[in-house]
């Protein structure tokens, strides 16, 4: 649940989602769920000319399982807080 909570703090921020088929989508993080499925608004496809199939998409849902990376604006991340949360979660898991 660590990353679910983490992504909830990033709602409203601009992120870039790179999928496992090398397609990358940028947009505003609208919401996230426990599977780390994400919903983006104001979606733009990176390298849109190459993927005219995705042209008419403004808002989209991305299945968590097809995500490879998510680029996050580093200014919006409190890394100390994140590390502490991670240590707590790992201690709880035992």
């Amino acid at each position: 649940m660590l990353f679910y909570s983490f992504f909830k703090t990033l709602v409203g921020k601009e992120i870039a989602v790179e999928l496992k088929n090398d397609v990358a989508l940028t947009g505003t993080l609208h919401s996230v769920d426990q599977y780390l499925n994400v919903k983006l608004t104001d979606v733009q496809v990176v390298d849109a000319e190459r993927y005219p199939q995705l042209g008419a998409i403004k808002n989209c849902f991305i299945r968590g399982s097809v995500v490879r990376y998510i680029q996050i604006p580093s200014a919006d991340v409190d890394t100390e807080l994140l590390q502490d949360a991670c240590r707590k979660e790992s201690a709880q898991g035992k």
Partner: peptide
């Protein structure tokens, strides 16, 4: 399992293509 992205289609824009 087979679904990657679900996008809301702008029907006007889609029809104009």
């Amino acid at each position: 399992d087979n679904i990657a992205v679900i996008g809301e289609v702008d029907e006007v824009e889609d029809a104009s293509k």
